[in-house]
Computed example of a mutant assay.
Amino acid sequence: MKFKNFPMVPRVIFGAGSFKQLGEILLPKRKSSDTPVIYLVDAIFENQEISKQIPVLFSDQIIYVSTDEEPKTEQVDALVSLLKTNYPELPAAIVGIGGGSILDLAKAVAIMLTNKGKAEDYQGWDLVKNPAIYHVGVPTLSGTGAEVSRTAVLSGPEKKLGINSDYTPFDQVVLDPDLTINVEKDQWFYTGMDCFIHCIESLNGTYLNAFSQSYGEKALDLCKEVFLEDIDSSSARDKLMMASWHGGMSIAYSQVGVAHAISYGLSHVLGIKHGIGNCLVFQYLEEFYPEGVALFSKMMDKHNIILPKGICKNLSENQLNTMIKVAMAMTPLWENALGANWQDTITESKLKSIYKKI
């Protein structure tokens, strides 16, 4: 038996206010004043306090990126082309500051600066040939696990699928819970549920092992504390940031499952953001995760979350078929959830019935 030899983030700093040390962290990576650090920052932070704290020096550039839509392969290609045109040398670093979309975008740009072709060419598993340039992740939301995962999830012309490789993980992560203080309630819940669903899918999967189980159980316990108990806001921020980290580690050595596979189709066709997409799907997966769905319902009730309805009500047959095609292509996710014979359970009609409930 051959065991997976996955890389992990080699350096991480955690603590309220740790973002202020970013300049110190980046300084040794600067070759000269002409070699910039490129900051990819969620556009929501433009003219906000967090942007004023970004340690810009010399020829550094801040690029504000809208997260109204999920990151796309063509967006990665456009950013890489821009950087190669504007700078004769490779940047000293790519720094992603934002939620999962920005972190995935930063990982993908760092990879594509050193690999030929288009980003869509690398959607899959272990297709990247050359190491990425130095890249740093600074999450401003907690739950996606993008800060620790070996994938950069992108929507391409044909599919939504990650660039999964040993070169994808960040070289450095800055975990500052204070950066999540002003997250809106619904966004906080949806992103936190991404972590919760990671845990449920990992802990109930056929790929489960002691490594993924140890991280998944801890992340699940933290999610229960944050979303079911009454704890102070500072402690909740700390715990959810740690839950996100542990949840991401749990799936690093296992895999996600049914909710993620189905939500990829939803996102690819309708542009539904990942967190809420998982929630929209998960509520109807009692057949696969009965205990998890029961907990999810309790969490929604406690925080007065009402999910939108009728999302798929007026979809054309072509749209539904595209969703199904994207979801059915997630073979490792289905195998983790249901085993090698997953196609005995998951059929096109089965998926169509779930989508039509949403």
Rank of each mutant, 00 (worst) to 15 (best):
N164K: 12
R150V: 08
Q172V: 15
I97Q: 10
V41Y: 09
D77C: 09
T180M: 10
T206S: 11
L154W: 00
F288Q: 13
I111W: 03
S18C: 15
N336Y: 05
A329E: 12
A261R: 07
M241H: 03
W245E: 05
Y167D: 02
Y253L: 08
L103H: 11
K129H: 13
A252I: 01
G339F: 02
Q187H: 14
L338V: 05
I102M: 10
H268N: 04
P131K: 12
Q343W: 01
S254M: 10
L40N: 11
G145V: 11
Y64C: 01
K2M: 15
I50T: 08
K2E: 14
G205E: 06
F45G: 11
I181F: 14
G99F: 06
V136K: 09
D68Q: 14
Q187D: 10
T73V: 03
P308V: 08
V293D: 01
S297C: 04
K118Q: 14
H303R: 08
P169Y: 10
G247I: 02
L307R: 03
T85M: 12
K224D: 07
S349A: 15
K302Q: 06
L280N: 02
Q123G: 04
V41L: 03
T206H: 15
V56A: 07
I181P: 00
Y190A: 05
G96D: 05
G17N: 07
E225Q: 13
M241R: 06
K313Q: 14
P290C: 00
I163Q: 01
V148K: 06
V76G: 07
Y264K: 09
Q283S: 01
A243H: 01
M328G: 04
A219W: 01
A243T: 03
A236T: 03
M193C: 09
I44C: 10
Q172T: 15
M8G: 05
Y207K: 13
Q48C: 12
L222C: 09
I276S: 03
T345M: 04
L228F: 07
M299T: 00
K84W: 08
N182A: 15
G277F: 00
Q187L: 15
M242C: 06
M8D: 11
A78W: 06
A337N: 04
A327I: 05
D171M: 02
W342L: 09
A340Q: 13
A337Q: 04
